[in-house]
């Protein structure tokens, strides 16, 4: 049985991820990410680089590229990959728990 994300239990990892979206994570956060990063529908959120090392937006890839193009979002525009990671984390948290995280990437 795959671990079921639980808002009460897993809320402790939100701040850890915000502090360092890419890098070494605690076992608890890593488990959370391994589950959240698997979309069983086959759709895949990706990071679209508009200007190398300067500007990124998000896109959604269909399960099969023959199904259609990557849907690219105009907004938000990110100035770092970590900022984008935080946005995707927040969306996935909402999907799994129904809760919003009303915190910006940086205060």
């Amino acid at each position: 049985m795959v671990y079921k994300i639980d808002a009460e239990r897993d809320r402790q990892y939100i701040e850890e991820f915000r502090a360092q979206p890419i890098g070494a994570h605690s076992p608890g956060l890593q488990r959370l990410l391994n589950i959240m990063r698997n979309d069983t529908t086959g759709y895949q959120i990706v990071l679209i680089c508009r200007k190398p090392f300067a500007e990124w937006v998000l896109g959604t890839m269909p399960p099969n590229r023959l199904d259609g193009p990557i849907v690219v979002e105009d907004e938000p525009v990110f100035t770092s990959r970590e900022e984008a990671e935080w946005e995707v984390f927040r969306r996935r948290w909402r999907r799994y728990t129904g809760e919003d995280i009303n915190l910006p990437y940086r205060d």
């Binding site: 990063r37 698997n38 990706v46 990071l47 680089c49 990124w56 590229r65």
Partner: peptide
Amino acid sequence: HITARGAERQMGRLLTFG
């Protein structure tokens, strides 16, 4: 990054498309 689901988990970060 286009065809294999699970690549994001393997990379430990979002898959970047230039």
